[in-house]
Design a protein around this nucleic acid. Structure first.
Lengths: 166, 166
DNA sequence: CGCCATCGGTTCCAAAATGGAACTTAAGCC
DNA sequence: GGCTTAAGTTCCATTTTGGAACCGATGGCG
């Protein structure tokens, strides 16, 4: 596989990375969640080249993660769509991991208050069916219908999953 | 900021991306969770260049996400450490987002069985304090102690957070 | 023992992506 | 009418990545 074929992989992680797996893209999303909306604000906050920013924003709009909206003649804002807002679990999981494992000893950079209960919270990933927190050791991945249809990928992964039982 | 200074940003998302934000890295992690462990297996599964794979694996070992372990003289396995295992919420959140938003109409590529309850599950991010599912609209980010120490970043973000109240 | 295959890389060069400064275009503002 | 700001685009230098070929240490096998 080449990197630009990643979107066509039969894997939801690959397809997600086709959208947000580029250098800078998740940082643009992070800023969008912090209500940054304008070209120059993104550029100043991130320090990336205008060139690249322009391209990334265009791509995110094409994918439907951001929408571009004029707030004056010839002046635009970029805002998260529903699709973009649903990236939140990925973003907040990254923040939690960084808080724990990339700490520099000066305390966490940001706190997140859950307005519903009023407390600073950490995200916890739980099972949609039983509500228990997920431990990766307690999860068994299985070939789904989409992957089954793709026989080459199927056999390659099938081998891995079978042999992993050892 | 330049990309290779990203690790030193006062932001846990940036610091996480310093480890897993490179092209290919999350796919290596994905494979590791599917119990791929050997150099040639990663290379064949991913189709990336041996050159790059070699570098990425080395970096992940340096960061303590993978550990390299000889299973024979001169033959090695790469396995997730505790630090690596805790990337699971990020990975499974990406899978969920891709399932929903990057579907190609052929059904989901993979299903995940939660052994604890025996059902196929979706990850749900809930609040560590009250247990309710998190809606990003119900979260207020606040400057934490680590960010407060960094005054330039503080003032820039402070502005954003204040003006966002409008 | 000697040969061959496999694994786990490294080297080297071409191709692609990124960075950065300068330029452009269209409003608004005074 | 001239100045400023926002939102890009252009063009070239620098960095990263891709890919094929090479290399050295085991291990298996006749």
């Amino acid at each position: 596989m080449k990197w630009d074929e990643i979107e066509n992989e039969v894997c939801s992680v690959s397809r997600t990375l086709a959208v947000v797996g580029d250098r800078w893209t998740m940082l643009i999303i992070r800023d969008a969640f912090l209500r940054v909306r304008r070209f120059d604000d993104f550029q100043k906050n991130l320090g990336m080249s205008r060139h690249r920013l322009s391209e990334r924003l265009k791509k995110l709009v094409e994918y439907g993660v951001l929408r571009k909206e004029a707030y004056q003649a010839n002046r635009y804002e970029y805002r998260l769509t529903e699709k973009g807002l649903e990236l939140y679990p990925i973003l907040i999981s990254m923040a939690k991991w960084g808080d724990k494992w990339m700490d520099d000893g000066k305390g966490v950079p940001m706190l997140y208050k859950h307005n519903t209960c009023g407390k600073h919270y950490k995200p916890v990933v739980v099972c949609s069916e039983c509500g228990e927190p997920i431990d990766p050791h307690d999860v068994t991945p299985e070939i789904g219908p989409g992957k089954f249809a793709s026989s080459r990928a199927h056999s390659a992964l099938h081998h891995v999953l079978k042999s992993a039982g050892k």
